[in-house]
Amino acid sequence: MADAAVDKGWATLLRRNGDEVVARWSEAAAQSLEGRMTRAELERDVREMYDALVAGVGEGDRHTLADASFAELRALLADVSHTRARQGFSSTETAVGVFALKEAMLGVLEEHGDLAAYRSFADFSRLIDELGLYMLEVYAQAREAVIGEQADALLELSTPVVKLWDGIISLPLVGTLDSARTQVVMEKLLQALVDTGSEHAIIDITGVPAVDTQVAQHLLKTVQAARLLGAECIISGIRPQIAQTVVALGIEFGDISTKASLSEALLAALRKQGTDVVRRTGRRDR
């Protein structure tokens, strides 16, 4: 306010015509957000953004979002983008809220502006573009986070532990094993061992496309952890090509027992457990 006589740019215009800007801004934003949120919600958001913007704008017309005075505005925009991303708004619907301010300002300019204000509109426009881009950036991050959570949920679903026999459980692995997935797999398997009181686990990797050093490392860790609980693991479903890569990479499975097929692994586990499998003769050939 001090330099009101000198400063006739957009910042002054924005500050002086608060209610009108907010009204026009809400109006413009509502056109694209119709039905997605109530008018009251929208107006509240717009009012908050307006207050934060005005609070951050000091003297003069040249500002960038990186200015320290805009910290509150940045936090607010990030917050709004987050909420929108979680609520399933599209990126356009998220950014349009800010871009609508340009239209609102043009309206205000026509009513009250002079040449100086018009000239400063380029600066204003640049700042608003920055706000929009910033929102989009945060929006993208938030969407990534949502996707990550869904991937986690999928992970939970895709790792079933099945009971094969009293005291023997099996974990059929399908897909690529990375470190995040292995942790989930490990936890599930170990918990299942404890819950079912099983002393044998068969990790079947028929559905794992490739075994590299890292995957092997993860498998070894799982087996070691199971041993600490007092259970033994057998790794089954090792296809010939996988056996070849394992050897070529020089991976040592140490004293961990491996079997080519799940059925052989089951048989081995049954034997260790002291259960004999006997085929009755004479009854099958009738």
Binding site: M186, E187, L190, L193, V194, K221, Q224, A225, A226, L228
Partner: peptide
């Protein structure tokens, strides 16, 4: 031994 403890020990 609890599973979480076993995983941690291995790590």
């Amino acid at each position: 031994m609890r599973p979480a403890v076993a995983i941690t020990l291995v790590e």
